[in-house]
């Protein structure tokens, strides 16, 4: 199991809502998305698959190239593929912005 953290200080837009999507089942993950307490966005990942820090970084770099909300994101991951990760993140964004 590995814990990974990223910061995206440029994501400054205030958000007010929370979202919880997904399940920690095989090949899937859960996302908790809520307003960040401090400045910028913070990502905390707990994954049961070790050694994919670079892949996570690439997914979040892409996600934050479009999304600018100052959010705290917590992820519990049970082996979601990068594609599933991005879909879950977009689903969470849909919940807070609908």
């Amino acid at each position: 199991m590995e814990r990974i953290e990223f910061d995206y200080p440029e994501a400054k837009r205030r958000v007010t809502r929370k979202a919880h999507v997904g399940v920690v089942g095989s090949g899937d993950m859960e996302v908790l998305l809520e307003p960040s307490l401090g400045e910028g966005a913070h990502v905390f990942i707990t994954t049961s698959v070790d050694g994919f820090r670079d892949a996570w970084k690439a997914v979040f770099d892409r996600f934050f190239s479009k999304f600018d909300g100052a959010v705290r994101i917590d992820i519990n991951d049970a082996g979601a593929t990068p594609g599933s990760v991005l879909l879950r993140l977009e689903q969470a964004v849909e919940v807070i912005e609908q």
Binding site: E30, E34, S48, N76, A78
Partner: peptide, 21 residues
Amino acid sequence: VGPFDRIESPWLPMQGIAPQS
């Protein structure tokens, strides 16, 4: 006691398994 209360299993991470919120 929903997911944002984050009452997770303390035992799963010790065994290399991701918990759920």
